[in-house]
């Protein structure tokens, strides 16, 4: 790392360290809020790592997440807790690779539909298996506190950022930028486009499954309909796009305001959350293409032009 890069990374490292101390100053309400934000930062940032450069919209988050919660639900009594997110990540990565191999050589519409249905598919199958075996939900009773969850998520977020930073400097990252611009050209300069996309898609798969495994103790009782709730996938998409996928910090800029807004709306008018989701979607498409990252770039460009003229 060069000196300049070190200086650039410094504020982010400082932010991370500050975030570590949140549980010592925040009350239960704000700690819970911070945990939710940390969760969405991991989900939205890892989502954007894949969807930003490739322009594929994945709605599979809920499926990976649900798989993760079930790993914890089934394994927390027999295995040490630290192993569970790792196992979940492995499973999530495998599931993502399988889905990617089937759908990523096809157009984006097929991918959206398939990932949207994936959570529902897994949910129906899990419910069916549970019915067959006479089970219903599962209790996850552990000694893990909200604080522990928050710190685990924070660590995971740091990992995701590190992965994003490394990919951005790697050949894979460069290949993905080329693919996002023109897939035909990408193939003709020697990029195995299908392989690159599948490889990258495993990252949100692993991250979301690990998040699910870490968060399971928070729910105490898990059942398929909550673990695989499709709403989660949409929340992640909207936060990532609201922030913008062009930069690593983009999703973070979307997560914070949207989580606060969501919290406000669920308390004031719980029936209007879907309307809010719809309106923000439309807002992004018509008013804020590129999210806050795009807005920031436009402001900077205008400022520079104004300064130059």
């Amino acid at each position: 790392m060069s000196g300049q890069e070190f200086l650039k990374a410094l504020p982010w490292v400082a932010l991370l360290i500050a975030a570590v101390f949140v549980p010592f100053v925040a009350g239960p309400y704000w700690l819970s809020m911070a945990t939710t934000m940390a969760m969405f930062v991991v989900l939205a940032t890892s989502w954007a790592l894949f969807s930003g450069p490739t322009h594929y919209i994945s709605l599979a988050t809920a499926a990976f997440f649900g798989v993760g919660t079930f790993v914890t639900g089934l394994g927390f009594q027999t295995l040490p807790f630290w192993m569970l997110p790792l196992i979940a990540a492995g499973l999530g990565g495998i599931l993502a690779a399988l889905v990617g191999m089937v759908t990523l050589r096809l157009s984006g519409v097929y991918f959206v539909i398939f990932t949207l249905g994936l959570a529902e598919l897994v949910r129906q199958v899990v419910t069916w298996v549970q019915n067959q075996t006479g089970q219903r939900g599962m209790y996850v009773l552990t000694s893990i506190t909200e604080r522990d969850i928050y710190w685990m998520l924070l660590g995971l977020a740091a990992l995701v950022y590190l992965a994003g930073w490394l990919i951005g400097r790697s050949k894979l990252g460069f290949a993905l930028r080329i693919i996002g611009n023109d897939e035909t050209v990408a193939r003709h300069v020697g990029i195995d486009t299908a392989l690159a996309k599948v490889a990258l898609f495993t990252i949100p798969g692993m991250a979301a499954a690990a998040v699910g495994a870490m968060l399971a103790p928070r729910y105490i009782y898990i059942e398929p309909s909550t673990a695989f709730a499709p709403l989660l996938s949409f929340q992640v998409v909207i936060m990532a796009l609201l922030g913008g996928t062009g930069r690593l910090w983009g999703p973070l800029a979307g997560v914070i305001p949207f989580t606060l807004l969501w919290e406000f709306i669920t308390r004031q008018a719980p029936n209007q959350t879907l309307l809010l989701l719809g309106v923000v979607f439309l807002l992004i498409v018509y008013v804020l293409p590129g999210g806050f990252v795009g807005l920031w770039a436009r402001i900077r460009r205008r400022f520079h032009q104004g300064g130059g003229a």
Binding site: F174, G180, N181, D182, V185, V189, G190
Partner: peptide, 18 residues
């Protein structure tokens, strides 16, 4: 077919990497 979001140099580097 150029890559519009990449710089001129990056467009050419694209041909040299893979």
């Amino acid at each position: 077919r150029l890559l519009p979001e990449l710089s001129v140099v990056e467009n050419v580097v694209a041909g040299a990497v893979f």
